[in-house]
Write a protein that binds this DNA or RNA. Structure first.
Lengths: 252, 252
DNA sequence: CGCAATATTGACCACTCTCAATGAGGGTGG
DNA sequence: CCACCCTCATTGAGAGTGGTCAATATTGCG
């Protein structure tokens, strides 16, 4: 009970939000503490998303940007034939919904891969705040620019990489993001299914499975269902002849 | 001679810039005429790029955004092995360089596919202007959001589409963009090589060639070197089981 | 406990890549 | 003006990566 009440205690959530999400979003970008507080003030914290629950769906009106606080999200485009294209997985501190600004309508869907909490940032109030805090404009341009660079790295991966390179890149990307968040870079649990991984990487589920098995046979990783252990980050990196995702310089 | 002098006449270029590039960028976004003029005032027009000449290279410091005025650009990531990944082709009215904002450094290169003119928009002065014209913030967020949605449509194409779907989507995208610019939607000249097309679509040059031949055999298009005639847009669209690029709604 | 969903593994096949040869333009220099 | 060269494009043949189909674990959940 005390654990449960701690989860819904607003003060704690507010602190958690600032520490976990806001700080991660804002501090590296050089936003000042006072401005962070003003940004924090316009945010709301809806109840946590359960696994499989949608944060928004393609076609929904765009009202807010979202920052993941805990858990993880899958962002995907639903296709006509009932299938979907996974566009990305979002970890705490990452911003979601930026692609909806153009048409003021979400063009993709976002659902929780596990129990997930987010901060809701009403876009209109964000706009007002930008008028008061000029640096905020550049700040958000940076955030959205980062998404753009991320997608471009993904285009490179899908355009040039084979199955092994795709999976290795995926694992290294997760590893790096977990490390940045203070978790182990060499052991973590996947919150997404093999199906989602394959979909994201443009591969069949079976190919993902086979690649996991091959990497395990080579002693580079140990895979047991969702649990992944990376034994040799160097060898994993060596498998990638493409620039690593998120690396600032991607030229040779 | 009169033709040559017309090209370098600043007044005409200014008019051309406003009409061709600025208006296309700004008017659909709801920017007011007066603000457009202020935006126009901070722009400069460097000399035209020759075919193959770079507008910027990966690693260059980021100073400005660029809007294509005439001609076309190829944006690509140089890879370690000397190859490149083409990320997109940009036609008049399209903005380039947005992915450089995050690191204040260009992460990809842009070169002219033909003689190409651009508007240069110094980012710092743009920042200042955003302080004066609040609506400009939303305006640029929209533009960059559009790029994001474009890249996501491309991820879908590369993740799910076969060679035929990729080429058909590419042709329809060009067709639509030419139509929007007042040119024929059913006949146009490609400014990029087969090699660039294949690279962009994640296909070998030979596959692109074979697909062109197949589409021609089926009577859907006529291809003669750079010249493309689309005889049956409907049939071309029917080849795509994926959402069309740029379509506002991409869910089924 | 049993059903359903997820994951793994194998066999086969198709799409696309690679390699190779030929053909078509476009530019340069004689 | 033509011959030559070089790049680009097309076409064919063979090979390989990854997709599809199918069967069999394994796990999670009601």
């Amino acid at each position: 009970m005390s654990a449960a009440s701690r989860v819904i205690d607003l003060t704690n959530i507010k602190v958690a939000c600032r520490e976990c999400s806001l700080a991660r979003l804002c501090l590296p970008m050089g936003l000042e503490r006072a401005d962070m507080d003003r940004l924090d003030a316009i945010m709301s914290r809806p109840r946590p998303l359960r696994r499989g629950e949608h944060l928004f769906r393609a076609g929904d009106n765009f009202r807010s940007l979202f920052a993941v606080r805990s858990g993880s999200l899958k962002v995907y485009t639903p296709c006509q034939d009932g299938t979907e294209q996974v566009l990305g997985f979002h970890l705490p501190g990452e911003l979601v919904g930026l692609d909806a600004i153009e048409h003021e309508r979400h063009v993709c869907s976002a659902k929780g891969l596990e129990t997930t909490t987010v901060c809701t940032m009403p876009y209109e109030r964000l706009q007002d705040l930008v008028g008061d805090i000029p640096s905020l404009h550049h700040h958000f341009m940076k955030l959205i620019s980062k998404e753009l660079a991320r997608d471009e790295a993904m285009l490179l991966l899908l355009g040039k990489g084979n199955a092994e390179e795709r999976l290795a890149t995926f694992l290294l990307s997760l590893s790096q993001r977990f490390r940045e968040r203070g978790f182990s870079e060499s052991e973590f649990n996947l919150s997404m299914s093999r199906h989602d991984i394959g979909n994201y990487l443009g591969l069949a589920v079976e190919t993902v499975s086979r690649m996991f098995s091959r990497l395990q046979d080579e002693g580079v990783v140990t895979v047991h269902r969702k649990n992944i252990q990376l034994h040799d980050l160097g060898r994993l990196r060596a498998m990638i002849h493409l620039p690593e995702p998120g690396s600032p310089m991607r030229c040779g």
